[in-house]
Design a protein around this nucleic acid. Structure first.
Length: 731
DNA sequence: GACCTGCTGCGGATTG
């Protein structure tokens, strides 16, 4: 028997709508997703790039399923962004109008009236966020059942954005709790970018589940690639002058000439750099006497300014280029762009893939990526990173891995016990109090989000939370909120699983431009760059947390701090093979090729092929070529054996002891010969382990477990030490 | 440690 074409499986009114919209054919993922979603009895993960029609691949069959039922069913769509919900609402409403299925957006900006309409007749499509769902569980625990009893599907958009985060753990928990309230399994459909291992995305969508994976045909990337190198002269020796910063200007000039007249995206890796380049490019437009076409976009700019940039990109009769952070990495609709620029090393292979995927969407158009790399001029004082041209090699390794279609596997090992604290307090709110055993079953039993946490550990958590007045127990054994817990749960900030810094609002003549984290203090009279323009600080109000500014001219150093991300072992391995290789990098300009040659020369001069340790004066550098999680774990292992070690870019830096290099080798052998220590032992001397929102409410032993699960690859570090020992035994 | 994301209920005033 042959399967009928997917199109014929869709409900009649949906087919009519598609005819009306003049769809010529279904996309590959749609063709394959429709037959598995229509019956409504399987979990499905759809992996494809932006604009390959993932949303329709989920909604067309899900709505078909709804129409084939009694018409009273509900589809819950969960998105990480309000902006995405608003986008989706516009698109879905047109389709659903014809089907007589209501669509309700439900998030923090939606009015009570609109929410009330859904409450009165909860069916159709509900578009919401994890936080709004959390609020429903907390404030209307008793109505969750009546709201959601007819749910046929949960669709999670941008699944990859949830994996490996405390917010993702919260989502898993909410979906699990939802099914426990309703008393049955609800099919889950996850929409994800292409990931290194899609089955891990499935394991995230439903722990211990068995999803159908629908992955987009690996269509070859028609990539046009250019890497340009820029050399920055060193600051003067007396050090009282600002660094010259010629290179960023040269990069801005190249961006200006190669991008004006088309739509593009520029990713300089930090808000600070976004401001710097947006400002330079705006000035260049002024000098050239043309209307500005370069717009900034980042998370601290006000919604209005961001909307202005998105609008500029979308409109047809003028061109625009956005200088942006990862705010434009997710699926917000900004249309196709001609090219993408990456300044400095991309944060990860997966993120670079998402970014470049914004270009070359129209048939026949290539994907254009320009990568700009600044390195300091070499002299006899240059440090190891400069000599090795590390940033250039990291950029190259990341780009090559992308062209080889390798991506970081999603990080699913994190325990995120911070979120266990939240979910436990939320359960108390939902049920008006809960027994410890019931809570343990809901949160930690097989298939639950915190599966694997022992009863003893759970009890230790409850005791600790009680000691902090977060919870208390009544005479019947029922657990309730304590004084502190009551206050926390009854504030709206409780619903988010993640923290954010306290921020100052930047205001000019009554209009909010955006916000700044408080870490940077400002004085009046200072000039700042914000929203691509220069402002004079008139007044800083520490009570209202408002910075009043007025427009001014001239530039000064922008705000925000910069830095790096977490690097996977595979990227470091690829860097090493690039150092060892001889073949030319033929998609780089002369200067970038020069950096490659200089890096390789340094690598061979320092004999890094054979060396494990390198004398750095006061420190010894242990070269591992592992990822950050491996390096950090090795630093912990060495610390536990009495050294003073910390993870750095190429390995672990160890403070020199009287025994010198031999002593360090001894310690590595020691690590290799001993069994892997328990996490408690490993992190016994570590402090400052709190990273997530409720980490402060965890007992030390659980904080250590949670930290280790997120940041340390102990097995990898131990295996590395063993491999060193084995190599020495055989020579 | 880069980047990013999200948020209720209620009371009181104002308006149609």
């Amino acid at each position: 028997m042959t399967t009928p074409p997917a199109f014929e499986l869709l409900a009649e009114p949906i087919r009519q709508y598609l005819w009306g919209e003049q769809w010529e054919s279904l996309r590959d993922v749609q063709e394959r997703a429709i037959p598995v979603i229509v019956p409504g009895d399987r979990d499905v993960v759809i992996g494809a790039a932006t604009a390959e029609g993932k949303t329709e691949a989920a909604f067309l069959p899900a709505l078909t399923h709804l129409l084939q039922g009694d018409g009273k069913g509900l589809i819950i769509y969960i998105s990480p962004l309000k902006a995405l919900i608003n986008d989706q609402f516009g698109r879905l409403e047109r389709l659903c109008e014809n089907l007589d299925i209501p669509v309700y957006p439900w998030h923090g900006d939606i009015t009570q009236t609109s929410k009330r309409r859904f409450s009165q007749r909860p069916n159709g499509v509900l578009l919401t966020t994890p936080e709004s769902l959390e609020a429903l569980f907390c404030n209307r625990g008793t109505t969750v059942l009546s709201f959601f009893s007819t749910t046929k599907f949960v669709i999670v958009d941008e699944l990859h954005a949830f994996i490996g985060t405390e917010r993702g753990k919260q989502l898993q928990s909410l979906l699990h709790r939802l099914e426990r309230v309703i008393g049955r399994t609800i099919p889950r459909v996850g929409l994800s970018a292409t990931l290194g291992d899609m089955s891990l995305a499935g394991a995230f969508l439903r722990p211990k589940g068995d999803p159908v994976i629908v992955e987009s045909d690996a269509k070859t990337l028609n990539l046009m690639l250019l890497i340009k190198g820029y050399e920055e002269k060193l600051a003067s020796k007396n050090g009282d002058e600002d660094p010259p910063e010629i290179a960023p200007k040269e990069i801005a000039e190249h961006l200006f000439t190669s991008m004006r007249g088309t739509n593009n995206l520029v990713f300089p890796n930090s808000r600070r750099e976004v401001e710097r380049y947006a400002h330079m490019l705006r000035e260049m437009c002024e000098e050239a006497n043309i209307v500005n076409q370069f717009w900034p976009h980042h998370g601290n700019l006000s919604k209005e300014i961001r909307a202005e940039t998105e609008q500029a990109l979308k409109q047809k009769d003028a061109t625009a280029t956005a200088i942006c952070t990862s705010t434009l990495e997710l699926g917000i609709d900004i249309g196709a762009v001609r090219s993408v620029a990456q300044i400095g090393p991309p944060p990860s292979v997966a993120s670079l893939r998402q970014r470049t995927g914004r270009s070359g969407r129209r048939p026949g158009e290539p994907t254009i990526l320009r990568s700009y790399q600044i390195e300091a001029a070499l002299d006899d004082r240059s440090d190891l990173a400069t000599q090795l041209r590390l940033n250039t090699f990291r950029t190259l390794a990341t780009i090559l891995l992308m062209t080889e279609r390798w991506f970081e596997p999603p990080m699913t090992s994190g325990m995120h016990l911070s979120t266990l604290v939240q979910q436990f307090m939320s359960l108390i709110a939902q049920h008006g109090g809960i027994q410890a055993s019931a809570a343990y079953g809901l949160l930690c039993s097989p298939g639950a989000p915190f599966e694997g946490l022992s009863k003893a550990n759970f009890a230790a958590l409850l005791r600790h939370m009680a000691s902090l007045d977060l919870i208390m127990q009544d005479s019947s054994g029922l657990l309730l909120h304590g004084r502190v817990g009551e206050r926390i749960v009854n504030h709206y900030t409780f619903y988010a699983a993640f923290t954010s810094d306290e921020e100052y609002r930047i205001v000019t003549s009554g209009k909010t431009l955006g916000s700044l984290p408080v870490s940077q203090m400002l004085a009046s009279g200072q000039r700042i760059l914000f929203g691509g323009r220069t402002w004079l600080v008139d007044e800083v109000d520490d009570v209202q947390k408002v910075i009043a500014v007025s427009a001014t001219k001239g530039g000064s150093p922008p705000l925000f701090s910069g830095g790096g991300g977490r690097v996977h072992t595979r990227v470091r391995e690829r860097m090493r093979s690039l150092y060892q290789g001889k073949h030319e990098v033929n998609f780089a300009d002369a200067r970038a090729r020069g950096f490659v040659e200089q890096g390789r020369n340094s690598y061979h001069r320092l004999e890094l092929d054979d060396r494990i340790v390198l004398d750095q004066g006061s420190h010894v550098l242990v070269l591992t070529w592992l990822g950050d999680a491996g390096n950090e774990a090795l630093a912990c292992l060495l610390n536990a054996s009495g050294a003073e070690a910390s993870a750095v870019e190429l390995g672990v830096e160890v403070r020199k002891v009287p025994g010198g290099m031999d002593e360090v080798m001894d310690r590595i052998r020691n690590v290799a010969n001993r069994p892997v220590p328990h996490v408690e032992e490993l992190l016994a001397r570590a402090s400052n382990l709190q990273r997530e929102k409720w980490d402060w409410a965890l007992p030390v032993s659980l904080l250590q477990k949670s930290y280790a699960s997120l940041y340390l690859d102990i097995d990898e570090a131990h295996a590395w030490a063993r491999s060193i020992l084995d190599a020495q035994l055989t020579t």
